[in-house]
Amino acid sequence: MKTLNKILLTGLAVLSIAMPAFAEKIVVTGSTTVLPLSQKAAEVFMQNNPNADISIRGGGSGVGIASIIDGSCDIANSSRPIRDVELQKGASNGRDIKAHIVAMDGIAIVVHPSNGISALTKSQVRDIYTGKISNWSQVGGKNEKIVAISRDTSSGTFEAFMELVLDKQKVRPDAIMQASNQAIATTVARTPNAIGYVGLGFLSGDIKAVTIDGVMPSKETVLLGKYKVGRPLFMYTNGAPKGLAKDYLDFIKSAQGQSIADELGYVGLK
């Protein structure tokens, strides 16, 4: 009997060493725009909470929302609001999808630094991207063909641009399509007659942001709603977040989380 007790006790002791505490695990999937914020916040959060296990994946907004619908993730990152069809699909899967705004993203319209143009109106930008305006002289610049550079029509950034600037009109088919914000920034920096659009975090000395309807894109103008080409970034949960998902979301929304957003070039909400 004594031996049996000993064995049991040893077993318990081994178990308790192997699992010092119950480690909670969540999976976060979706938008590559939100990914850096999601990733950095998770790293800092896990340093402070060693028992938390947050696994972050990209894939894009569509993938994130599809995963929250089929239940393969706990939080979906998205750079666009969820669509009605997706909400319905979620509802028919028994999900009650809740939105959380975690930061703002401003989209700056950029040109090559040598370009004399430094102010455009939203409708001029729209006409450039739909093809109505094709020469810089039509907006007061040099007599040069405009090279319009866009994000892929499937990206969240394009979707925001299409709604905020294009009024859902079709982008000209011969616009150069790039797969990332960085690729647009690089291409605009190398192409004297180019125009492109990037998240505020991607602005640098190699490209020049123009004012839109007289407003320069910046953290302040985006948050105050003065600069019109900005958008909220979302995290979606199934029902009200609980446990680790709640703690993680609360952390991102906290002052520390929002200062991470600022450091990464997003527009923090605080």
């Binding site: 907004s61 569509g62 993938v63 929302i65 599809a66 669509r83 892929d152 499937s154 150069i176 399509m177």
Partner: peptide, 30 residues
């Protein structure tokens, strides 16, 4: 260059099938 147009010169951008699949599959709702 990724523009989905029928090219008329070798200086036109194009969007080959593989590029379209790679760029869009991640964002297409399943």
């Amino acid at each position: 260059g990724g523009a989905a147009i029928i090219p008329t010169s070798i200086f036109d951008p194009v969007r080959p099938m593989t590029a379209a699949i790679a760029a869009e599959m991640g964002e297409a709702p399943v």
